[in-house]
Amino acid sequence: MTTTMFMTVNNSPVPEPNDRHFKYALAGAVAVEALLVLGLIWFGQSTPPVKPVKPKQHVMAVQMVTLPQPPSKAIPKPVPPKPVPPKPVPPKPVPPKPVPPKPVMHRMTPPPPRPHPQVERPPKPAPTPPARTVTPPTPAPTVPAPKPVVTPPPAPPPMSAQQTASLMGRYVGLLRPMIQQNLRVPAELKAMGLSGKATVEFEISPSGRLLWEKIIKASPLGAVNRAALAAVKAGGFPPFLKKMPKQNTVFQIDVEVSAGSN
């Protein structure tokens, strides 16, 4: 490596020193400066170039640590004074218990036994013979008195067919308004203004209980048939009239379903 140094020469006029020492000092300074320049030139040629040294990379492991919170300055609780134990009280002297004197045992001779007095026993009575048990005579079997024969009242004369038909007609006259009252007209018939008639056959017991029901003459409208059958199923019929035959009876009634009905 070569180092070049430039020297600037000042051409300004230098005042001549008056004394000799100034000349010597100036000559020495010039000589020293020349030696320094030559030394720097020689040092630059002799020293090899310095290789740049790469700094080493240091890897540091960093770990996050949560430091505990500093304890809060709590107000110290007042320490209660320690209880002073009471001074031990010396036990009172217990007087010695007096020793009871030993009892004196006196031996006593038992008195002589007294003679038992002789008791005279009475003689045993003679045994009495057992009394005879008299069995009462068995009573004769009683014959129950014959029950009086109750003759049933004479059966009423059978009703004629005309009377039976008249009673049935009266009973059917009671059933018709009840079935009509139970009738509920479907909304589809009301909306379309349709009407129809269906014949329902059903059986009733003498107490008025409905046993079964069915349509025997249907209407072309299914809603009419369903409404007529539902009106009979609702039931609530009265018992038979007094003179009607007491047996299950089958009835046939025409049920009219119209849009104007309730």
Score class of each variant (00 low, 15 high):
54 K>N: 11
55 P>L: 15
56 K>Y: 02
56 K>R: 13
57 Q>V: 10
57 Q>C: 08
57 Q>E: 10
59 V>L: 06
60 M>S: 06
61 A>G: 02
63 Q>V: 12
63 Q>T: 14
63 Q>R: 09
63 Q>G: 10
64 M>H: 14
65 V>H: 14
66 T>R: 09
66 T>W: 04
66 T>G: 01
67 L>T: 03
68 P>V: 03
69 Q>D: 05
69 Q>C: 00
71 P>L: 15
72 S>K: 07
72 S>Q: 00
73 K>R: 07
74 A>T: 07
74 A>Q: 10
74 A>Y: 01
75 I>G: 00
75 I>W: 03
76 P>V: 02
77 K>I: 01
78 P>Q: 11
78 P>Y: 01
78 P>G: 02
79 V>G: 01
79 V>N: 04
80 P>M: 01
80 P>H: 08
81 P>T: 08
82 K>W: 08
84 V>M: 06
84 V>W: 05
84 V>D: 09
85 P>W: 10
86 P>R: 06
86 P>D: 08
87 K>Y: 01
87 K>F: 06
88 P>L: 12
88 P>A: 11
88 P>H: 02
89 V>F: 07
89 V>K: 14
91 P>G: 12
93 P>T: 13
93 P>F: 00
93 P>H: 06
94 V>L: 13
94 V>K: 12
96 P>W: 00
97 K>M: 09
97 K>N: 02
97 K>G: 06
97 K>P: 01
97 K>Y: 09
101 P>K: 15
103 P>V: 07
104 V>T: 15
105 M>P: 04
106 H>N: 07
107 R>D: 13
108 M>K: 03
109 T>P: 01
109 T>R: 02
109 T>E: 07
